[in-house]
């Protein structure tokens, strides 16, 4: 059966509904945390964005590897999409983390290992996107950015394990068993909602990347008409 619309829109609608429910659930239906009070509600957007940022950057790593091995352009489209969506989620992660830090640590930002490694991770992937934007040839851009993505992926385990390697003010990963059921549920609903949203973003961005590849080096907007052509 062929849908009258792109398949990802179905996921997008489910994601939007689940995301709205997750936000209301996290804001109003979950009791305050025993230590952090209501401020802990920020974690219902902060932690899911972190999980999904890591997941999407892992997809970018797999796509980069896939392109270098197979040379299939679909991997490059997916890589382009994953880089951008991963950066978006990391910006969300850092902004919500910064807002959470102010009432809990009394600072907006602290150069401690987790925050510093997350900022380095973000800047590294931004660097890969900048590299993509300056290379005009499709094949060359795909190869260079795949190699750069694999190098950038070093920051993933470094950031993830930074809280264990260098113990500092940022808390270590929490086991679900240590969290009360309503809070755990709020995390899971929001994590699934952000995952579905990220899937919609990835699919839409993939289509844009595929169309750009087809157009080659053509600019996104038509060239203005010359006087003699008018």
């Amino acid at each position: 059966m062929k849908l009258p619309f792109a398949w990802e829109h179905l996921i997008g609608v489910i994601a939007l509904l689940l995301f709205c429910y997750g936000q209301v659930f996290g804001l109003f239906m979950v009791p305050p945390d025993a230590h952090m009070g209501d401020v802990a509600r920020i974690l219902f957007v902060h932690v899911p964005s972190a999980w999904n940022a890591f997941f999407v950057f892992t997809i970018a790593f797999v796509c980069a590897l896939g392109y270098l091995i197979s040379g299939r352009k679909g991997f490059d489209h997916a890589l382009e999409a994953a880089l951008e969506v991963g950066i978006l989620l990391t910006i969300l992660l850092l902004m919500t983390g910064s807002i959470f830090a102010k009432p809990t640590w009394d600072v907006w930002w602290k150069w401690e290992p987790r925050l510093t490694s997350s900022a380095i991770m973000l800047m590294t992937y931004v660097g890969v996107v900048v590299l993509r934007s300056v290379v005009q040839d499709n094949e060359r851009r795909a190869v260079w950015s795949s190699a750069a993505t694999i190098l950038a992926s070093v920051t993933l385990p470094l950031t993830y394990f930074s809280v264990q390697i260098w113990r500092s003010i940022h808390q270590i990963q929490t086991s679900p068993a240590d969290i009360d059921a309503p809070l755990r549920m709020a995390w899971r609903i929001n994590a699934l909602a952000v995952l579905l949203l990220a899937t919609w973003f990835l699919a839409r961005r993939w289509r844009i990347a595929a169309r750009r590849w087809e157009l080659g080096d053509a600019p996104p907007l038509p060239e203005p008409l010359q006087p003699e052509e008018v």
Binding site: L27, G37, D38, V39, R41, V45, T96, F100, K102, P103
Partner: peptide
Amino acid sequence: RIDGKWGYIWGAY
């Protein structure tokens, strides 16, 4: 325990 601070919560959301 930190109480209130809803401005930060609304800000983050």
